[in-house]
Design a protein around this nucleic acid. Structure first.
Lengths: 245, 245
DNA sequence: CGGTGTGTTGAAAGGTGTCAATGCTAGTGG
DNA sequence: CCACTAGCATTGACACCTTTCAACACACCG
């Protein structure tokens, strides 16, 4: 019951000192473990939520589709991230979510999340924190797309992913597996696949990264941080309001 | 105590049927009414939150500043919107907030918000809903900046504002006061002031809007909705999960 | 009345998009 | 084991949207 490797316990432990009761509630929240194939739609925009998941392994992404086929990737979802958490507060999904790789998830019974609010206020606050954090990451991506050059925002995203993957032990030094196609990367950064390709090559040529199609190596993290104005503050996972601890 | 014109009661009433006790708690949340001059910094990024407000009148905006002076406006905050709500979950501000016009606000004691989580779970869920809604609007702006043309995203924003202002009785038919400078509009939409100017003129020339520098009139809402792919679903204020009602 | 902020306009430069062709790799089936 | 295919990455030429730079008009205000 106190399995320290459990992703949900680990995630929430960063935010607050969990009591035994809270640990028990969190463990009970997690139903069963499931494997979902790559490229599967998990949440469909405007439809009623059916499931909530916590990612154990693999990548997924949230996105919005425009009428003419253009799409915008809103977020990459990694180990420890929730999928469909909004089920706790919204009736219908506000955007779609799709698996990128094969995904190992813990399924979560949505009703249990709602019960959190009644019975364990500190955990409710932590859920609220998760929702808010998503919004912070969105804000950062938005300033990227709106005000950074292609070069800056591409580097910025790669650094963000390094940081987030590091927090869940999916990096090796400054490299990580990167299952994102350039087309998807383009839809994330508001560029075209062709231009993403050129930008990646520019990053390679400048000695900032290596990339063989499967794995990203950040060759010169500190220089890249300078060039892209990357400030990891927004990713901090330990700054929950003390009033809830 | 049951003042139906109170903005906070009105806001939350849309989400759930408030009990008398909940009404009382919400009223007690609101401390005093205050007037803040235009162009005042209310929340400073990375600093500890000092205040939470609920807007009664006037405009404010959230923004992020890059090192070299570039800035991205993240959101416009209107009547009924919270400022610094994140104080409930974050220790430090994730972005700055500044008044655009003179602002009439209700001040809210942050500690009281935290108490909400312990004592009135349904209100806690409503706060969480507010946080989530912000994230939904951010997502929509992001797809705008990332995947829509200057013309589309400008029209889209003007339609969004029409819809949001309508919900708080600040429109006259399809027109509303618009205190945003073109420079600020540029920083919102990821464009330059010059190009915003040209885009607004194009919208005027096409008979979509009128604009005299102070007031926007949407001349042809349905056509503009078509042209910009505006789907107001994401702004709905009545779709909180039933589990919390 | 001059200063400052805002809006407007034109010309030119440049970043990014579009179009199109080629190469590469993995998977499939004969 | 070898075509064959499909998807993705790569590259070049060119077009175009948006930016940059610059100048001017206008309103507000001390």
């Amino acid at each position: 019951m106190n399995d320290p490797s459990n992703p949900l316990l680990k995630k929430f432990s960063l935010l607050l000192e969990l009591t035994d009761e809270e640990r028990a509630v969190l463990m009970a929240l997690q139903d069963r473990c499931e494997i979902i194939p790559a490229d599967t739609e998990l949440v469909h925009i405007n439809e009623e939520y059916s499931n909530t998941f916590l990612i154990q392994n693999g990548w997924a992404y949230g996105y919005v589709l425009l009428a003419d086929g253009r799409q915008q990737i809103l977020s990459f979802l990694l180990r420890g991230d929730f999928i469909g958490l909004y089920t706790a507060v919204f009736k219908r999904a506000e955007y779609s979510v799709r698996t990128l790789t094969e995904l190992t998830v813990y399924t979560i019974v949505p009703e249990r999340i709602i019960e959190l609010f009644s019975n364990t206020p500190r955990l409710a606050a932590a859920v609220c924190w998760s929702v808010a954090r998503e919004s912070v990451i969105l804000a950062e991506h938005m300033t990227g797309i709106g005000r950074r050059t292609a070069y800056e925002r591409t580097g910025h995203l790669l650094l963000e992913l390094l940081q987030r993957l590091e927090a869940v032990d999916l990096t090796e030094s400054t490299s990580y597996e990167f299952p994102v196609t350039q087309h998807l990367l383009a839809d994330t950064l508001g560029l075209t696949p062709v231009h993403i390709n050129r930008t990646l090559r520019a990053l390679k040529k400048d000695g900032m990264i290596s990339y063989d199609g499967k794995r990203i190596i950040i060759e010169n993290p500190s220089r890249l941080r300078e060039l892209t104005g990357f400030d990891p503050t927004y990713l901090a996972q330990t700054d929950m309001s003390e009033g809830n601890e």
